[in-house]
């Protein structure tokens, strides 16, 4: 279970972006979070990925309550959640090649030896060819770079996947290809998905259920 329980978060203590958001994703389930831009969907996604400490509320991941965030969070908890962001350009270190970007989580967790085989496994799964892997971000298109960013999120085989507007900058065909790659991974591993976005048609098609962020009021699900 990925449980967000009455979470309030923001960047200034006095003026949180949203208050009291509650949302639950069951293992293997895919949930779409729909809402207009500027209401805090991305902030909620960052909280769910342990990247942003909420002002109040709880995040419970597979029964463990998360008490530390970012670097301080236990590594097993952090790497159990994979994230893909909206803009591949800012989400990829411009100095690394695509292969290094995909292998980075393995190197960072001291599993360097597995890097090559894992990259060779993931690249075709997201539709990247071998010649693209040796290039740096500025030498590939947005779509190709986002494929690499998705592969990086899958490198450590996370049990949870968070896609924050993953396809907002992409054309229809690349969108369909990336969604297909995510679904293939989920079918193989049974990972849960939280897909954040504003495209109702896309999320309805992609996810088991969608939750709405109406009039800038966050979802309040009770279980």
């Amino acid at each position: 279970m990925l449980e967000l329980d009455t979470v309030t978060a923001g960047y200034e203590r006095r003026a949180p972006v949203f208050r009291g958001a509650s949302l639950t994703v069951a293992p293997g389930e895919s949930v779409g979070l729909l809402g207009p831009s500027g209401c805090g969907k991305s902030t909620l996604a960052r909280v769910a990925a342990l990247l942003h400490r909420p002002d109040a509320g709880r995040l419970v991941l597979d029964g463990t309550e998360v008490r530390a965030w970012r670097h301080r969070a236990p590594r097993e908890l952090r790497t159990a959640v994979g994230v893909v962001f909206q803009q591949p350009r800012t989400a990829a270190d411009p100095r690394l090649t695509l292969a290094e970007i995909i292998a980075e989580p393995l190197r960072a967790t001291g599993r360097r030896a597995e890097a090559d085989s894992r990259v060779a496994e993931l690249a075709p799964a997201v539709g990247l060819t071998a010649d693209l892997l040796t290039r740096r971000p500025h030498e590939v298109s947005d779509g190709q770079l986002q494929r690499a960013c998705l592969a990086r999120a899958l490198t450590l085989s996370p049990r949870w996947l968070i896609c924050d507007e993953m396809t907002a900058m992409l054309d229809a065909s690349t969108t369909a290809a990336l969604v297909a790659a995510v679904e293939t991974y989920r079918a193989e591993t049974g990972a849960g998905l939280l897909a954040v976005g504003h495209d109702r048609v896309l999320l309805n098609r992609w996810c088991d259920r969608t939750v709405e962020w109406k009039d800038c009021l966050p979802p309040k699900e009770t279980r």
């Binding site: 539709g127 060819t129 229809a172 969108t175």
Partner: peptide
């Protein structure tokens, strides 16, 4: 055709390969 078929309100299947 492939581009239209990739839309989520149509077949939602990508065109294979990359440009």
């Amino acid at each position: 055709r492939g581009l239209l078929d990739a839309l989520p309100d149509r077949a939602f299947t990508p065109i294979p390969g990359m440009p």
